[in-house]
């Protein structure tokens, strides 16, 4: 799915640590809930705890804004 690049503010960053076999905590996309493997699409969001929103890919940043927020309000 193409996401309109000009409306997006995130950037790719390494967040997941799939080869950390000592820990089982998993990181999930802030919109769709999918597990993050290694790369995440990170959006700076000072109002959020931790100051950022983490998505699995750019499309989820858009869907978060267009669908998730109006319907459910606020983060997870």
């Amino acid at each position: 799915m193409s996401a309109d690049a000009e409306q997006l503010t995130g950037a790719w960053a390494e967040r997941g640590a799939p080869d950390d076999y000592m820990h089982e905590e998993t990181l999930h996309c802030g919109c769709c809930g999918r597990m993050i493997v290694r790369r995440a699409w990170v959006v700076t969001a000072p109002e959020e705890p931790g100051g950022e929103l983490i998505f699995c890919e750019p499309v989820c940043e858009r869907i978060y804004a267009e669908y998730w927020l109006p319907r459910h309000g606020g983060g997870r």
């Binding site: 799915m1 089982e24 998993t26 999930h28 919109c31 769709c32 809930g33 999918r34 499309v59 997870r76």
Partner: peptide
């Protein structure tokens, strides 16, 4: 698959958390 998006909240019946 690309135009079909799924939202499945973690910790529910549709997106189970370890273990």
């Amino acid at each position: 698959y690309r135009p079909i998006r799924v939202i499945a909240p973690p910790g529910t019946l549709v997106n189970v958390l370890h273990p």
